[in-house]
């Protein structure tokens, strides 16, 4: 079977399009590349969706935590502590069984036990908490002069936040936020490894890599392929976030721009 044929059969296997049966023996390099790459669709889906939605909650959490009102500050602090203080792995397990028992009482929550929604909610809360802490740190290090200047121009409330505080916060937080995005993509590999079941063998990249390693007893091919895909994804994320960073820093003299500093980190 030629490689083109393999790609046609398996490139969209992880979303249920194409050949139903996974290859069972005589695994070619092409099959491994195609299937693991197909699994990456899920990793990208979880990562981008969680980032896109989590961003807004993160901003709200940061503003809440920096607030002087206790009823705003305490819930944000607790939310951030809850999700940053416990392992994501345990959060997945707990959430899955929690959703499972919810489903038993109310069939309405049926979709929550499947990965595409249930795991996304966990990742959403998780990334919101981590980014919220980053934004909170940035919020506290906004130069005093910027806010005083805004006051002097008569800006208050929403317009001051929208035009001065929020862009500056983003600018200061962006390098750290890029790291957070990278870890989030790495963390998406945990979804199917914890409790969330893989339905009809439609798994993510690690699921397929594990499948091949299991069948061939040879971890030295599928895992480096997985690493290759993730390094590629990381580079794309760095590139994309770098563009935004440039945009956020465009008004500053070159020497004062905040540089992207990469600090890779492990599990959360």
């Amino acid at each position: 079977m030629s490689c083109v044929q393999t790609i046609q059969d398996y490139a969209l296997r992880s979303v249920g399009i194409g050949e139903r049966l996974l290859p069972r023996n005589d695994f070619t390099l092409c099959e491994q590349f195609t299937l693991i790459g197909s699994g990456m669709i899920w990793n990208i889906y979880f990562g981008t969706m969680a980032l896109a939605t989590g961003f807004f909650l993160a901003t709200a959490l940061a503003v809440g935590k920096a607030s002087s009102k206790k009823w705003l500050r305490k819930p944000s602090e607790w939310f951030i502590f809850l999700f940053r203080g416990s392992p994501l792995f345990i959060q997945f397990f707990f959430a899955y069984f929690f959703f499972l028992s919810l489903k038993q009482s109310f069939p309405f929550f049926d979709a929550l036990t499947s990965a595409w929604l249930g795991a996304l909610i966990v990742l959403f809360c998780n990334t919101a908490a981590y980014s919220g802490e980053i934004f909170y740190g940035a919020l506290r290090s906004i130069p005093k002069g910027d806010i005083e200047a805004a006051d002097a121009y008569g800006m208050t409330g929403w317009s001051r936040f929208r035009r001065i505080i929020w862009p500056t916060m983003l600018r200061l937080a962006w390098p750290a936020y890029t790291n957070e995005a990278i870890f989030l993509f790495h963390a998406t590999t945990l979804v199917f490894f914890s409790a969330f079941p893989v339905w009809q063998q439609r798994g993510d990249a690690l699921y397929y890599a594990g499948y091949f390693a299991d069948k061939t007893f040879n971890p030295f091919i599928p895992y480096p392929i997985l690493a290759f895909y993730f390094i590629l994804l990381t580079l794309v994320v760095i590139w994309g976030f770098g563009l935004v960073n440039k945009h956020l820093n465009r008004h500053l003299p070159v020497a004062k721009r905040s540089k992207m500093k990469l600090r890779l980190n492990l599990a959360r």
Partner: peptide, 10 residues
């Protein structure tokens, strides 16, 4: 440089 759990598994 290598992604987290993949490293453990490997």
């Amino acid at each position: 440089g290598v992604p987290d759990i993949a490293f453990f598994m490997f």
